[in-house]
Design a protein around this nucleic acid. Structure first.
Length: 261
DNA sequence: ATGTCACATGTTATGTGA
């Protein structure tokens, strides 16, 4: 099973890019973020024409998440994270969807960016992260095969970003963000891409600004976390950098893994 | 610090989110 994740950054503006990548990459399951489309504006017909069924949670202008499956209808299990007990952060943002495909539970996570930091957006990021950690603990305890896929908006370690001091105050690299990611991993999840490629750059995102793509100054923001019963079945993975170089591309590249089930 | 991109409001630009 080939599973991919992609922050598409507006599914309708980049529909041709998405269709071209799907046709070439042929993933079985896709976790999509930043649809930037209302529920009714999701391009269900165009995707169905090339063999993909979908579940999605849309939102006007911002956010939005989806799960696609080739020749299968994903079985929707939830469209938001549960509120946490501290829960004074009612979530009206479409940042989480979860579905089962052929016996594997797949997520699309769009963790808040959190900039500027410090501030209310960073607080929202950390609070949202706590809700994710709580929900992930339940999934882990269930013993189900799970792929926690998505755009975590976290650079997990210094080797996951080009050398710079200009982002020292950026929410993506703050110790609090990294510690939350590490706490999630410590539940027993495997960071699939780092398991396959333990060292070296694994950029999945290049800012549109400042010629970051041309200079290959990227970051690793998009991750697959595997439950223990899946990590032994991980056989391959990569980043489809070619898609980032296409005209009208998202600022993220599609990232994928294959599981031998 | 900044040179991008897209959306919303409702313009001949400006604010915002990323």
């Amino acid at each position: 099973m080939k599973v991919a994740t992609l922050n598409i950054n507006n599914i309708n503006k980049r529909l041709d890019n998405l269709l071209a990548w799907l046709a070439k990459a042929q993933p079985d399951v896709v976790s999509l973020q930043e649809l930037k489309a209302e529920q009714e504006a999701f391009p269900v017909d165009a995707l169905r024409t090339i063999g993909y069924e979908a579940v999605w949670q849309g939102e006007r202008s911002w956010n939005g998440v989806a799960i696609l499956a080739r020749n299968h209808v994903p079985v929707l299990t939830c469209t938001s994270l549960p509120e946490n007990s501290a829960g004074h952060y009612p979530d009206h943002q479409a940042r989480y969807i979860e579905a089962a495909v052929q016996g594997v539970l797949i997520t699309s996570i769009y963790l808040p960016n959190g900039n500027p930091q410090p501030g209310p957006k960073f607080n929202y990021k950390l609070a949202w992260f706590e809700r994710l950690i709580a929900h992930a603990a339940k999934l882990m305890a269930s013993g189900a095969p799970v792929v926690l896929a998505g755009d975590y908006n976290v650079v997990p370690t210094p080797q996951d970003i080009y050398p710079t001091r200009s982002l020292d105050n950026n929410a993506l690299i703050q110790p609090e963000s990294r510690q939350a990611f590490a706490r999630l991993l410590a539940q027993g999840w495997t960071d699939a891409m780092r398991k396959l490629h333990p060292t070296g750059p694994l950029w999945t995102f290049w800012d549109y600004k400042f010629e970051r793509w041309q200079k290959d100054k990227g970051m690793r923001l998009d991750h697959f976390l595997l439950s223990p019963n899946l990590s032994a079945h991980l056989v391959d993975g990569g980043v489809d950098r070619w898609a980032r170089g296409q005209e009208n591309a998202s600022d993220h590249a599609p990232t994928w893994i294959t599981l031998d089930l």
